[in-house]
């Protein structure tokens, strides 16, 4: 599903440069649910951005679903992002003047789907996250948990191969966090491959595998016994 070989990335800081990723090797199979952990500055967000094609590696190989991701034009990257990836952000990143339904339909708009069809599909996904009744509300009228559900519905709308979540519960309280995690686990049960950055142990333990980063290298990569989130809800 996803294969990374000797990935390097550095950022220029003034005259010198900061070497953030120092040769990462990572393979993720279909159906996995991986947590990437590490303190801030360990390079976990950079890794996720490169996997999400929002950023490009300086060196190394990245193959997504058999496709080498290298020297993409902006246009091509846009198409790949739309087709292969679903993003879930810590701060939700919904467009504030669009209703929940329109937000979910946005990736489908960029796929060139007809309006009627994409609104139908968006409603189906909103239903799936339990927010069909809120479809015509603006993001500001929704609670944090609801916003994240809309964001998840949006990430799912284009039916991506890989879900990327950057601290999906970072802005939520514990109860809502578990609520969201239960939902993400359910998606994983249905077969979605999920890659998640977090620095919370309890959230990481709800995944099936934990990759720990420190100073740009992988310290530890182990499978864990998944803690089901439902029991806390």
């Amino acid at each position: 599903m996803l294969k990374i070989n000797q990935l390097h990335k550095s950022y220029p800081i003034g005259d010198s440069s900061l070497h953030v990723l120092k040769g990462i090797d990572l393979t993720v199979d279909e159906g996995e649910m991986v947590a990437i952990m590490g303190s801030s500055g360990s390079g976990k967000s950079t890794l996720l951005n490169i996997i999400g094609m929002l950023d490009e590696a300086d060196e190394g190989e990245y193959i997504l679903d058999g496709l080498p991701i290298k020297n993409l034009t902006e246009k091509k990257a846009a198409v790949y992002r739309n087709k292969f990836l679903g993003f879930i952000f810590q701060s939700f990143n919904l467009i504030n003047y669009k209703t929940a339904l329109e937000n979910v339909a946005l990736p489908l708009y960029y796929q060139g789907m007809k309006r009627k069809e994409r609104l139908e599909k968006a409603l189906f996904h909103l239903e799936k996250v339990g927010l069909a009744n809120w479809s015509h509300h603006l993001p500001k009228e929704l609670s944090g948990g609801q916003k994240q559900r809309v964001a998840i519905a949006r990430a799912l709308a284009a039916n991506p191969k890989l879900l990327l979540a950057d601290e999906p519960t970072g802005a939520l309280d514990t109860k809502t966090s578990y609520d969201i995690m239960a939902f993400i686990q359910q998606l994983n049960d249905e077969g979605k491959t999920i890659l998640m950055v977090t620095h919370e142990e309890d959230i990481a333990n709800m995944c099936k595998r934990i990759v720990r980063l420190r100073d740009g290298v992988i310290m530890e990569d182990k499978k864990v016994e998944q803690v089901r989130a439902e029991q806390y809800v």
Binding site: G52, L54, E74, K75, A78, V79, R81, N82, K83, F87, N93, L94, I95, N96, L106, P107, Y110, Q111, R154, A158
Partner: peptide, 16 residues
């Protein structure tokens, strides 16, 4: 800026 960033993450081409 943020909205445009979101759109791009969701697959908006530079042309759009």
């Amino acid at each position: 800026t943020k909205e445009i960033g979101i759109r791009k993450a969701l697959g908006a081409s530079p042309k759009s």
